[in-house]
């Protein structure tokens, strides 16, 4: 009827129910996104088999993998501290996660710089490599944006432990990005 009533829409539903809805929706989103990564893996194997360009830097690959795994740990710590109500630790852990994520992106950027010489996008390996890492880095970036917004909110006490959904959601998404890399790392670097 009136649009003013409309603004209060959905407010009367129980917070526990809303949390369940949000969680399920996020899981559906994660499932859908994981299919994109599966598709990229299929493209990789159908075009290249297990071929890997020999100039791909194993060292950087290992380093950024360790960094991303470590960032998942700090993200987990952030969520735990939030559940304990320890906002200081939450902020600290979120900040470390943001830092590690940025280092990861810097690592990929450095690697791209090398790769442009060794296997440019106009080669098949380059196409696969840049698309896979590019799609993944795009997800890392969106995750970082979410984490940064959540960090700001926690800092300004706009997100508190009574409604920690923003923390949970961004952390869960961050773990998902990590899981995607768990499969991309061997597929891009290790098999040959």
């Amino acid at each position: 009827m009136t649009a003013v009533g409309h603004a209060a829409h959905g407010v009367h539903e129980a917070p526990a129910k809303r949390l369940g809805i949000n969680r399920l929706g996020l899981w559906f989103f994660i499932l859908s996104e994981s299919i994109l990564f599966v598709g990229l893996l299929m493209v990789r194997f159908s075009l290249l088999g297990t071929y890997i360009h020999e100039e791909l830097s194993q060292l950087i690959g290992l380093m950024i993998t360790v960094i991303l795994l470590a960032s998942s740990f700090t993200a987990y710590q952030a969520e735990r501290s939030m559940a304990r109500g320890d906002l200081g630790a939450t902020k600290r852990n979120l900040l470390i996660t943001l830092g590690l994520g940025t280092v990861f992106i810097a690592g990929v950027a450095f690697e791209w710089h090398e790769a442009l010489e060794a296997f440019p996008p106009s080669t098949v390996f380059g196409s696969v490599f840049f698309t896979m890492t590019g799609v993944h880095v795009f997800h890392v970036l969106t995750g970082l944006v979410m984490l940064a917004i959540v960090h700001r909110r926690v800092r300004r006490h706009e997100t508190t432990s009574t409604d920690s959904w923003p923390v949970e959601a961004s952390v869960k998404y961050w773990h998902f990005v990590d899981v995607a890399w768990v499969f991309f790392y061997p597929a891009l670097y290790l098999i040959s």
Partner: peptide, 19 residues
């Protein structure tokens, strides 16, 4: 959490060694 991340690290090392 610590245990999980240790397992992840160990598996990554094994993975790398196998490669």
């Amino acid at each position: 959490g610590v245990r999980v991340v240790l397992v992840l690290g160990a598996l990554t090392v094994i993975e790398y060694a196998i490669a």
